[in-house]
Simulated scan of single mutants.
Amino acid sequence: MLSVLATEPIFGGRKIAMSQPKTALLGVGLMGRPMALNLARGSVPLTVWNRSAVKCAGLENQGITVANSAPEAIADAEVVISMVADGAITQTLVDDCRTALRADAVWIDIPIKHSNSA
């Protein structure tokens, strides 16, 4: 279960410690950048990557790691979130990242445009 807001959930009347999963966000455009900032505010360990590196400007100042490539971004991630323009780009990311993806990682794709190719 991914919990961004609850840092000390209560179960059976007791607080239990939860760690935030290492997360990678691929695509920090109009939707991805605010999501990255919200995740960072929620103390989620976050690495981001974008095809246009300029869109990552300033994120390091928010405690976010900026990767040089998508495979580098997802290498240690338990959760991968992709938010890119279309299904063809998503498929390219999946193909490029296949060998870097952890076997137990969860990949969440949030499509920007609907496409039959995703």
Rank of each mutant, 00 (worst) to 15 (best):
D104G: 04
M18F: 11
S115I: 05
N116E: 15
G87A: 07
G58D: 09
A40H: 01
S19H: 11
V106R: 13
G87D: 09
L46C: 06
I64G: 02
D86E: 12
L2Q: 10
A75I: 02
K113Y: 07
P71T: 13
P45D: 13
T99H: 10
S82H: 09
W107R: 07
L30M: 09
D76W: 00
K22S: 10
R14F: 14
P9G: 05
K113W: 05
L30Q: 10
T65F: 05
L93R: 03
I10E: 15
I10P: 02
G29V: 03
P9R: 03
T47Y: 03
N61H: 03
V28P: 06
V48N: 07
T90V: 13
D95C: 03
V80M: 10
D104K: 04
V106H: 14
T47S: 14
R51I: 02
A73D: 04
I81H: 07
K55T: 09
L101W: 05
D86S: 10
D96N: 14
I10R: 15
A67I: 07
I110G: 06
W107K: 06
V84N: 05
G32P: 01
I89H: 04
G87V: 08
V54I: 07
I112G: 01
D104A: 08
A118F: 14
L25I: 02
E78Q: 14
N50H: 10
N38P: 00
G13I: 13
P71K: 12
N116R: 13
G27H: 04
G42I: 09
M18H: 10
H114V: 04
L59F: 11
A40P: 02
L46N: 06
G58P: 08
M1Q: 09
L37D: 00
T47K: 04
A24K: 00
L46H: 05
D96H: 04
K22W: 02
V84D: 07
I81L: 15
E8N: 11
I89F: 01
D104E: 14
S43I: 08
R14W: 10
V106I: 15
V4S: 15
Q91V: 04
D86C: 10
A57V: 09
Q62R: 00
N68F: 05
P111Q: 06
G32K: 00
C97Q: 11
R51Y: 07
V94C: 12
G63Q: 01
T23S: 08
E72P: 10
A75Q: 13
L39P: 01
L46G: 05
V80L: 13
L37V: 00
G13A: 11
R98V: 07
I112W: 01
